[in-house]
Design a binder for these strands. Sequence first.
DNA 1: ACTCGGTCCTA
DNA 2: GTAGGACCGAGTC
Length: 944
Amino acid sequence: MPEATTPTATPHLYLVDGSSYIFRAYHRLPPLTNRHGVPAGAVYGYTTMLWKLAGDLSRADGPTHMAVILDASESTHRNVMYDQYKAHRPPPPEDLVPQFPLIRTATRAFSIPCIEEDGLEADDIIACYALAAKAKGWKVTIVSSDKDLMQLIDEDAGIDMLDTMNDRRIGREQVMEKFGVPPEKVGDVLALMGDSVDNVPGVPGIGPKTASQLIQQFGDLETVLASTDQITKPKLKQSLIDHADAARLSRELVRLVCDSPLPEPLEDLALKGIPPEPLRDFLTDQGFKTLLARLESGGSVPTPRSSSGGGFNDVMASLDRKPTVEPAAPDRQEVDRSKYETVIDEAALDRWIANARATGYLALDTETDCIDCQVAKLAGISLAVAPNRACYIPTGHSGADLYSDAPSQLPQDVVLAKLKPLLEDPAILKIGHNFKYDWVMFSRLGIEVAPVDDTMVISFDLDAGRSFGHGLEELAKLHFEHECIPFKQLCGSGAKQITFDKVPLPQATEYAAEDADICLRLWLRMKPRLAQENVARVYERVDKPLVAVIGRMERRGIRVDREYLARLSAEFSKDIAALEEKIYEAACGPFTIGSPQQLGDVLYGRLGLKGGRKGKSGHYSTDVNELERLAAEGVECATLVLDWRQLTKLRSTYTDALQAVINPETGRVHTSFSLTGAQTGRLSSNDPNLQNIPIRTEAGRKIRDAFVADPGHKLLSADYSQIELRLAAHMADVPQLKDAFRNGDDIHSLTAEELFGASDRESRNKAKTVNFAILYGISSWGLAGRLGVPKDEGKAIIDRYFERFPGIRDYIHGTLSFVRQHGYTRTLFGRKTHFEPNIRSPNPSIRGGAERAAINAPIQGTSADLIKRAMARMDGALADAGLSDVKMLLQVHDELVFEVPDGREEAAAEVIKGVMAEAAGPAMQLDVPLDVEVGWGANWGAAH
DNA sequence: ACTCGGTCCTA
DNA sequence: GTAGGACCGAGTC
């Protein structure tokens, strides 16, 4: 029995210096990302290292005990000694920051204990464990290459080091080779030479060579300092005399603290094997396919050395080992839903309010009976003040059906009256996830919540463009590997779905309090990153203020003329019916016109037309280009279908749909704007989308007329003229374009002159297309297609454009080289959009797409920043001008729509124009003016 | 009841 | 060539 031999073997403790490892792995490995798009190069390096170490478990001299040691906090006893300690260390690279938490995840996945302790650096913890193990006669291997730790090497006592980066064992001999002194003298050498990274001062003028030589000659630091009279070099002598105190301080700074109590007893670090289960999940989740394949193949699953033949059962046998030691840092505590409280009496509510006041901030979340916050009724409110300290306050729960009683709960007005002073207190920060929803709910209940932080917006400002969304559940999984209770589990789905107010309080509490708890944890985790990753300004100054501004716009809604829409619907229906008859006649029989599949078969099959293109689905393409081609060839059926499509589109998407979304209480349509909907920083609009109301065609334009002002008011529309081209001229620094905008010249005519030496209508149209192509990330192929010319000619035009406007070429090259290097682009106001991993894809079409998007993102994003800045200031500027009854209703990317009392149009126009035109200042001075065109009328169509 | 591709509306 | 959302038919569960 091999087991019989195990107890007699000397225990061997491996202490892994995780903190120093990831810095080195980061700099040595390429900037990989995991399948979530989060940088994971260092994590991957770390994982392979653990894998290798785990493999040593089966070796005769391999580890029996193992722990990973991490740095817990910034401040240690060394800062007390010397306030400059590590003071000049630059912040970690921003694509390393998101990897820190993953290091713990990886360690946990291997079921290896992970130790960190406030106030102690990893080096000190390692020293404590090394000496404790030595005292028991154990062998110790320190897995690190940190020179400070070389002080601990003591081969006679069985302490050595292992540098996994180059797979090298470090013993006394290697230390002698490096420092010229034995391990016990390394501290003296380090004290003399200092360390610029940790800001250990050392003695000026003394580097590794001199330090080593002096210690070899005199034996230790104190003797060196006492023997300056024997030193012949005058500079060196003086420096040692002048900086003796600095040398003594340095000696203390590099001394390892080894007398702290062990955070975990040595015995608890026993490691018999690596259970495959959490490891498999981790490797899958990160997309580390090579390691996963090795795990699945079973051959190289790390196995314990005590096992007879290794293999699966032995691995599983180690499942009963003590769980991974996890530090109790605030956001790392496991979510424990049993700690949540249901608040149903006033004393408890008062206690929670006092908790929040004492903390200074709270996370909160509202539960309602409906996802539309404009009509929803409140079911309850959850609060969280610290991880696992969360509660749910039901106020609107009813029984599960008509025959059961409502549960005991506080009345809504009591709860709101008690919460209102807290929620409106400017000294208490309220944190929500997608807080706009809650803001509108509270606003409807007469509470103006402020100040607020929104973790969804924070996540967006940090990680826009990465491969994960910004929903609470998704972020909980990503940042904490925590699975939230699915809403479906509580309320079901589809026809059998119940509303939240019918959920029994125990389950409702677990779900609702968890949301607030997770929101608070996300805030603790992400808020510091805003400053570290240099996006605090765009969050604080642009996006955060928009939460309440947009909440107000959504609450106001816009008035829609229902009868007018109904008449339009009827009109369209009549025309559609007539077209259908004609189409069936032309097609020799009825079919589903709305089915592209059937339409393709009719055109190219039954009617036998030629030249059809098939897409990847194997069906004929029947898009507008194909139908227009056929129509131009005189195919009547194609013309009819085009008309049919336009009218059915208008009817289904607009005239019918808009009538259905008029809020019965307000008689208005309340869209929902998403702050995180567009990766470039634009807003998006849904339920209904009011950012795609038709304008280009005659029939479509009629729909704009359905958006009307309240009686006694006008709708006023203000839009930026050619804002993206202006920004391109500024950002790419193109003198001709900037001059043209300053002089108010026609920009497309100027481009036509430059490109073609003429500015007739055809040349101008071509130039206009080229200008847009630039904004969208040009390709000769795409431009040629748009212009209907051969690819060569497209390329020639682009070349001429770059020749005439070299700034544009430099902008494109500069943007691409930046995004390739950093993985993201930035707007003028600092907004980031990430493009990893696609910007590095080996697939040219994916990479090309990312490149075009990256060229466009700074321009589109800056435009979004500008109008957002204008919106954030608008209500205040109107109020200052005595125009607080002018209401901002809609934003359509470069346009703002207002409702203005009759007679105030001119005054409002002046203020609005001013705010929009000055939106860049004072932070930014643009080289081009921002022109704003304003119009007003009884309806939106007339306001243009 | 859900997802996907095709289509088409906007800036 | 950029950025979105909505509707429909058709295929899947």
